[in-house]
Design a protein around this nucleic acid. Structure first.
Length: 235
DNA sequence: GCGACAG
DNA sequence: ATCTTGTCGC
């Protein structure tokens, strides 16, 4: 499991993923500690190859002002863990870190395709990536992992608190009128209201943030080109 | 034991 | 996540 460089002793006492998540969870900052002026926002996504364990990741940099794509980075690795809810970052974190570090510029904010604090141990993919890179991150998932929520209004901007164990762990946010809501939560160095604001700014027209839409497009295109051919170059 | 379960 | 066939609408 990837441990942040600035972690005390740079090592974890636990050897299992769950124990390590519990150890790193306290490192998450739930306050706004992001740059005064946000210029570059990064979106990340991963795609898989059905016939092998090949895995593809992409990091796409958008200009915060007009949401245009200004840079992309891709990476191919191999899946080393099967998908398992709760320890998802074990699978996608390594390639995502690689992709983000390939970018020429450092993003002011990273939007993840998965949960942040809205996680059994309050340490979803967005928290892990944020703490590891020591960068502001938002968890923005399409479906729920844990937590309960009441009904929310039908219009864009309407939201309802996502709660678990008497704690608000995120927001169920409607990003377009009459469309299924998204599950927004703190990743790192950002408050929940600010996270919601950014997700709304990133969804001027579609349900999903432009960051994830673009990252999704880039990574799928990358996989298509890489895997084109009757037989994969790699078994 | 049974159902839930980010991507 | 990925696959798949068809359908609706701009």
């Amino acid at each position: 499991m990837l441990v942040p460089e600035h972690f005390d002793g740079n090592r974890l006492a636990s050897n299992d993923p769950v124990g390590q998540q519990l150890e790193m969870a306290p490192l998450v900052s739930r306050e706004d500690r992001l740059p005064q002026s946000i210029q570059f926002i990064c979106g990340v996504d991963v795609a898989y190859d059905t016939r092998s364990d090949r895995l593809f990741a992409a990091a796409v940099m958008l200009c915060a002002a007009d949401l245009s794509v200004i840079e992309t980075a891709t990476v191919e690795t191999r899946a080393t863990f099967p998908y398992s809810p709760g320890v998802f970052s074990l699978r996608e974190l390594p390639p995502l870190v690689e992709a983000v570090e390939k970018l020429n510029r450092q993003p002011d904010l990273i939007v993840c395709d998965g949960q942040g604090l809205a996680h059994p141990r309050r340490f979803g993919l967005a928290c892990h990536l944020g703490v590891y890179l020591d960068r502001a991150t938002i968890g923005c998932a399409k479906t729920r992992l844990i937590g309960e929520f009441g009904p929310l209004g039908p219009r864009r901007g309407d939201y309802s608190p996502l709660e678990d164990a008497n704690e608000i762990i995120g927001s169920v946010l409607r990003t377009q009128d009459f469309v299924r809501p998204l599950f927004v939560s703190i990743g790192h160095r950002i408050s929940l209201p600010t996270a919601r604001d950014w997700i709304l700014r990133l969804t001027p027209r579609f349900r999903l943030p432009e960051t994830t839409r673009m990252a999704n497009h880039v990574v799928n295109e990358y996989r298509r080109i890489t895997c084109s051919g009757l037989d994969s170059p790699i078994r």
